[in-house]
Amino acid sequence: MVAQNIGFGIIALMMVVGALRVVTTTNVVHAALWLVVVLSGGAAQYVLLGAEFIAITQVLVYVGAVMVLFLFGIMLTRTRIGREGGLNNPHWKWGIPVALLTLAATVLTLVSSFGGEKLPEDAAPISTQAVSDQIFGPYLLPFWALSFVLLAAVIGAIVLARKD
């Protein structure tokens, strides 16, 4: 358990630093690369939480596909690579109090409701089979809805991005 806590600490630190760099760096490509760090850290946390399948999906979909999309987006919407100014709003400072307020509200709630509650140590791991039983059992309807969302997204992306 100690080892897991140390692992958690290192990965969490990495994720927080990465996330901060995503929102503060002056180079868009670097922001995308720092996002990779955060997302990979997320995958590692899922492994700690015994969710291997989600971790793999996270790596495949986020770190793989979504990041490629982002890099293409960056490539197609810019003329130069490197530092650039003007990535922030003129009133970007307003973001700090808003974020702190949000953080305060959530942390207060979490501390007051979960205090020192521990995760069950000897919990049986949730197998991928159980997840698939859930998806194709009680949660079939959301799954269908999701399929339509994806279809709509595909068509929408084509319609939006096509040249005419």
């Binding site: 929102v23 922030n88 974020a99």
Partner: peptide
């Protein structure tokens, strides 16, 4: 929660 707050900051501050 920390990641969420950082994300909120990014949404507000980024141009």
């Amino acid at each position: 929660a920390i990641l969420f707050a950082i994300g909120v900051y990014g949404v507000v501050a980024r141009r």
